[in-house]
Write a protein that binds this DNA or RNA. Structure first.
Lengths: 161, 161
DNA sequence: ATATAATGGATATTACAGATCCATAATAAA
DNA sequence: TTTATTATGGATCTGTAATATCCATTATAT
């Protein structure tokens, strides 16, 4: 399990937008060269962020992207949910709803089958709660907050401790 | 981003082992039919759990698996780390070490490239801390604990609230 | 010796992230 | 109005990791 590269790109792109002066559009060329990502790939990511209302986009000359709201109003959770999707991290196999399509004569042992755990499954309860812990933290941390962190070193660039 | 099916199977398999009487080996047939997973696939998972010291395995007649230590000493984090790997959930693109192989003349804008964020990257700091929140929760919750939860309904089976 | 049961290697299959290309639409400036 | 610029969305390709199966081997109780 890993966060996708898209999420890394998206988060960093937003950091760059947050750094740029308000009102100025940042083009995909600038973003992609700053991040070392291809324009075409990063475009897709920016489109998603726009569709979800995190950034605004203007086409044409002098167009580009800017934050749709203050950096202090954009949480890491917002970004993660757009780019990773909103499904739960954990599922109790086979979609967690239908009780397994096929399971004919299962060989010898006709045990009580214990699959098809729904919302009440104790395993799922723990896993969901664990996810919740992470999400809560992500929700409490905004782009602005991270930007401030960066400020104490060299605004968002290297800063190896 | 999703937990793998392997993790779901592994966790549930351990729940079953924890339920079975101590000293009795549970074979792969029994496990797989209870969980609705194929024997061959579940075998791989059990092998990993064994290699990591979470279960013991005995080959031959009356063989099978049992917990290698008390269910109260096996945390969800133990299981997740075996089956999902121990890498961090978040990486700042391209492996986070080498400074990007190729990046010849990047077109027009010779900006200061802002990639290759190491450990000090403010984005990574937030993401790592978020992961830490989840891991801490997983570490605090053991198989035994989940089993107790299940007990209050119908030991590990349905229990839709 | 035999049946049972886990192991590990090899290999197939599938799904999805990663990545690119192109035709289209929108916009500013000439 | 034309032109250059810039984002958009569809289609598609690729690579890789998760899923899944098969089989030969090893270990063990009877």
């Amino acid at each position: 399990m890993q966060f996708s590269k898209s999420t890394a790109y998206g988060l960093h792109a937003l950091m760059l937008l947050a750094k740029s002066e308000r009102g100025r559009n940042v083009g995909i060329k600038e973003l992609s060269s700053s991040l070392g990502a291809s324009e075409s790939y990063l475009s897709k990511i920016m489109s998603k962020l726009r569709q979800d209302g995190l950034v605004r986009a203007v086409t044409g000359v002098n167009g580009g992207y800017e934050l749709a709201r203050a950096a202090s109003e954009i949480t890491f959770l917002d970004v993660v949910q757009v780019l990773e999707g909103r499904q739960h991290l954990y599922e109790c196999f086979h979609g967690s709803d239908h009780p397994l399509p096929a399971l004919e004569a299962a060989g010898d042992e006709p045990e009580t089958p214990e699959f098809a755990f729904g919302e009440g499954c104790p395993v799922k309860q723990v896993m969901d709660a664990a996810e919740q812990q992470m999400n809560r933290y992500l929700q409490q941390h905004t782009i602005q907050l991270a930007l401030n962190q960066a400020g104490s070193c060299d605004a968002h660039t290297a800063c190896k401790k």
